[in-house]
Amino acid sequence: MALGGAMTGKGQPAPGGNGSPAFRGDGGARHLLEACGISRTAGGKRLLDGVSLSLDRGELKVLIGPSGGGKSTLLQCIHFLTPPDEGDVLLDGESAREMSRKNICLFRREIGMIFQDFNLFDHLSARDNVAVALRRVKGLPKKLAYERAASELERVGLADKWALYPAQLSGGQKQRVSIARALAMDPKVMLLDEPTSALDPELIGEVLKVIHDLHDGGMTMLMVTHQVGFAKHLTREFLFMEDGRITERGSPEELLKDGSGTRTSDFCSKLSEIQGGP
């Protein structure tokens, strides 16, 4: 088990953290995505405190931890939706910090983001929700955009729901449309922010199946979730986040084994009690 974020608090760089700015200048990218020393303060509160992590191609990492620990803020900072006060994000070795506003838009296209509240465009049908960015951002002709939207909706099992509007879809269907919308942009990495937390227990399975399929297909993902039972079978690394720092990281087996005494194990056992499962 390894402890710490960019720095553990005991002055040790976290393995895989790559918090050193010197890493930026090493030419080729060692990892597909790297967050280096991300910090963010808002309203006088330190939301993120020098968090670092990296993702290799095809890798899935899972962020867990109590609410208010900074998980969602970290995803938004990695996506540069909320630019971090300090630190940088490198995608394929390219620094987001040094990009112009226009290039930040291109950077964001490369990273798919799934929100816990779906954030579908209410005034557009499922097909248009998927096609709108293809047309307006990627500049695809309408016909091609609709064809691509149809194939992405089919991929998430919603081929027959293309004409429905968000208000006519169930929570699980809305989340699958939002996944299809992100996938249509051919992202290199997907960030998933509690994709099942706003769903009824009966609808969670359909979304988890899509995420499972994406992982099998080699998609690189960073997922915030409380579905520990599901996540531990997919990931090789759990990152436990609390008070704006990654305080523990390691394999699920390592962190969750009986008697490990880790904060992760303690948190997950409380989750299991609430969720009524392992």
Binding site: L81, N119, L120, F121, H123, A133, A182
Partner: peptide, 26 residues
């Protein structure tokens, strides 16, 4: 909802595109 603005930005829309294509029609 602010979420729709964030979703558009996450897809690579510029601020202008977000306003005219997403916020304004709604």
């Amino acid at each position: 909802k602010r979420g729709q603005f964030l979703a558009a930005q996450a897809l690579g829309f510029t601020r202008g595109q977000t306003f005219w294509r997403i916020t304004a029609p709604a």
